[in-house]
């Protein structure tokens, strides 16, 4: 569970968002909305601990005893893929997927239609396919909090449906998800429009 109280973030003296509060329980999903530059990506980065000089309180409660940061799956705007490595190598050294069994990862890759490219260098793939590599480690992972920044970007319609379904599966299993997207086809229980939290 994730609780946010009075969260504000300023970038060079200008507040991106101010006094933001919400709760996120297990099995809940929140969609962040807002126009460009309203701070959606920034909020995701603040939540997962990349940006630190925020004001307010962020608290996580997880059932497992392990470190909270290990319970977070972060999918950023950028894919964090190494272009000279193959898909398999990338997944092996990505800290989001290095603990997942290879069979599970391969299943996920198959779901997204990447099984033929396992040993292809990432630089030879299209932008959509690159996104799918990270999404496959998202599908195969088993964490309690997911922070996803534009998960569906660059995907074709069919893959969008597959990923949306997987997101729903995660929620059913009791994970909490915060995501940003301009898409309307993922069912979120709550919307947070950051335009309403401008200074």
């Amino acid at each position: 569970m994730l609780t946010i109280q009075g969260l504000s973030y300023a970038y060079s003296d200008r507040f991106l968002f101010k006094n933001l509060s919400f709760d996120l329980n297990p099995g809940e999903i929140i969609q962040l909305k807002g126009r460009n530059g309203s701070g959606k990506t920034t909020l995701i980065k603040v939540l997962c601990g990349i940006l630190k000089n925020y004001e307010g309180k962020i608290s996580f409660f997880t059932s497992s005893r392990s470190d909270v940061q290990n319970e977070i799956f972060y999918l950023g705007h950028k894919n964090a893929l190494k272009h000279d490595l193959t898909i398999i190598e990338n997944l092996k050294y990505d800290f989001r997927s290095d603990e997942i069994e290879l069979a599970k990862l391969k299943d996920a890759l198959r779901t997204l239609g990447l099984e033929a490219y396992l040993f292809t260098k990432v630089s030879d793939l299209s932008e959509g396919q690159k996104r799918k590599i990270i999404l496959s480690s998202f599908i195969a992972s088993n964490k309690s909090i997911y922070l996803l920044d534009e998960p569906l970007i660059n995907l074709d319609e069919e893959s969008k449906k597959i990923v949306s379904k997987e997101i729903n599966n995660k929620i059913k299993k009791g994970a909490s998800i915060v995501f940003t997207s301009h898409e309307e086809n993922i069912l979120a229980i709550k919307d947070i429009n950051l335009d309403e939290y401008q200074a």
């Binding site: 980065k45 997962c48 601990g49 990349i50 470190d67 940061q69 290990n70 977070i72 972060y74 950023g76 705007h77 950028k78 894919n79 964090a80 893929l81 190494k82 272009h83 990505d94 800290f95 989001r96």
Partner: peptide, 17 residues
């Protein structure tokens, strides 16, 4: 530069390496 540009550094911060 590469880790910064492609977002790998972000991940190090997420996992508190």
């Amino acid at each position: 530069k590469e880790d910064y540009d492609d977002g790998s550094l972000d991940l190090f911060y997420v996992r508190r390496f």
